[in-house]
Nucleic acid binder design. Structure first.
Lengths: 342, 342
DNA sequence: CTGAAAGCGCTTACAG
DNA sequence: CTGAAAGCGCTTACAG
């Protein structure tokens, strides 16, 4: 049977309330007594009961808000599942989690929701930000002026006072792709990069990681093109065609973003899908299909579930236990999948 | 604010106890009333409070025992950490978890501990079994006669009534290695397998998965040897030497078990460590070192933490919520690591 | 500075 | 078949 506050109180010859004040440094207690009680608690191996704590705290009605941009994308739908898991866990412990999905990227909408959450006395907010000057300002206002902690996920937003970022180390993801590409092409030959929007910081980081690592570790390899599809299938297909025309020896393609389908279809059309090595990102069902039929050799992924689950749990632990995250960055593990471990 | 039993009781015009009996199918209630209450609960979106439940259940003093064989090995030390995490979680919810490490493989010792746990009224047991006829018998006796549920982890034990197995799909792990080996050797040439004890079922499954997949998918590749080191470094080194002597064209080595260090040192000694592609298992610090310096190209791993954490949580949910595991097998994800995502 | 008491949401004998 | 009450371990006003 675990040690309880009551038992410590008896051992110390004081009341439960006093033990609580001592252990939690709530003040209003003689320092010597506090020290003595702490010692007794430690000797008895006291571990506070989450259940008791949660029940007593339920009166406070702690509320956490989550704002999810680009909620309509397949990846964010996976993130959403992670949020729901954390929502259930927190609510079974007496807290409250509300999720606000936003279609597409809309900083104004995000700010609007944030203001509403403030009105309704939310204690913490998790959000997937977009690059926006006004949003940065509002985030800082919330954390500093209103003292509402903010956790960013999926994309980070620089130069803000957000408590923590949960997501992928995108540059490292690019490096991982480079390491794989080198291994599967025999460490020599021509490869190309196909990206999405040229303004997407995450994709650009992947490109940067890929490029620097490939140049550093595999000097015999050459990147013959870095092209942007702007998420347009026709453009992506065109890029592939021209690439293969100009570089018939092309050995591999690294797809940083969302053009997987168009690229694979173009390769199939040209009869090259089993020859050219393709490395792509994210474990979406569609991408998995391309791996299974051999058009994509490897998928590199971020754990989507964790990106939904962790931000809420970090806030919960902060608000509930006062426990701050160990680090400002909570990186998702970079996972490598082939057809055998999808 | 979440819906509580009390609120449902008021809505239904009955007492809390009655609602509880209806929702939990505890009997002693008019079926119509039960159905009606269930309907109301659903309409109100009732979610039971884990905190309230845990606190009320604390009186029962639910105890879970964990028996960990080969506890001295580096891998099992990682598993142990996972157990400690689950122990803390369960205990903060009013349960009790005791861990019993056993050095080496000793079925007699395991049985002895199991008997003790039975004496002390433990409600569930997690254990890492070894192949042993007597142990199988005892496991069945516990599950059937004593009705103490048992979860196996790390290794499974066939033909028993254990509730669930938590661990790696070893055959799939071998297949994953085959897929990687094919990709990084250009899908042709000679490769070898170096294993540990020839009697280890897990290692044999990896070999089987590797062999069948390689033959099926890469007909141009040839396995020129499957050798056993019996966990002896000298033997492992000797195997490598002879292998390279007889097969100077050897392109890759798949290490199923624990001879990583000896194999890598032998390769370094022969000046072949950067040429020969090596795929090994498990994310031990030592193995990571070999990846970093390039002697090992890929590590395939099982999530050790999860193998310690899940068995306890499965038992806890079973005993606490009556929630049975979805499947008899709870496989750890197969992870692929190179130097960039270690 | 210290204590006594109410209450969080649930389960469990116990009474009827 | 149904209800009233005690208690799980903690926090939080409130009294002194």
């Amino acid at each position: 049977m675990a040690v309880t506050l009551q038992q410590i109180a008896e051992a110390a010859g004081v009341s439960r309330g006093t033990v609580d004040r001592a252990l939690k440094d709530r003040g209003r207690i003689r320092p010597e007594l506090a020290a003595q009680i702490k010692q007794i608690a430690q000797d008895m191996g006291y571990q506070p009961s989450l259940a008791g704590r949660a029940l007593a705290m339920a009166k406070r009605n702690l509320k956490i808000g989550v704002i999810l941009q680009s909620a309509q994308t397949p990846f964010m739908k996976l993130v959403y599942k992670g949020m729901e898991a954390s929502k259930q866990e927190v609510e079974s412990l007496g807290g409250n989690v509300e999720i606000f999905p936003v279609d597409g990227v809309d900083a104004g909408k995000v700010i609007e929701i944030m203001e509403k959450l403030k009105e309704e006395n939310y204690s913490g907010i998790a959000l997937s930000p977009s690059e926006d000057t006004m949003l940065k300002k509002v985030i800082n206002q919330f954390t500093e002026e209103y003292e509402i902690p903010i956790v960013t996920f999926n994309s980070d937003i620089e130069e803000t006072k957000r408590l923590c970022f949960v997501g992928q180390d995108t540059k490292q993801s690019g490096r991982t792709a480079a390491g794989l590409m080198g291994e599967i092409t025999g460490e020599e030959g021509e490869v190309a990069v196909i990206s999405g929007h040229s303004s997407n910081p995450a994709l650009n980081n992947r490109i940067r990681g890929f490029k620097t690592e490939l140049e550093k570790r595999f000097p015999q390899m050459k990147i013959v093109g870095i092209q942007y599809s702007y998420d347009d299938e026709w453009v992506a297909a065109k890029i592939v065609e021209e690439l293969l025309e100009q570089h018939p020896q092309l050995k591999g393609i690294y797809i940083t973003g969302s053009a997987v389908k168009a690229v694979c279809e173009a390769l199939v059309h040209l009869g090259k899908d089993q020859d050219i090595k393709v490395i792509a990102n994210d474990f979406l069902d569609e991408n998995k299909g391309w791996v299974e039929q051999g058009a994509v050799n490897f998928l590199i992924g971020q754990d989507a579930h964790m990106q939904g689950y962790e931000p809420v749990m970090l806030l919960f632990h902060l608000l509930f236990d006062g426990e701050k995250p160990d680090s400002e960055y909570r990186y998702a593990e970079i996972m490598i999948k082939n057809r055998y471990n999808l």
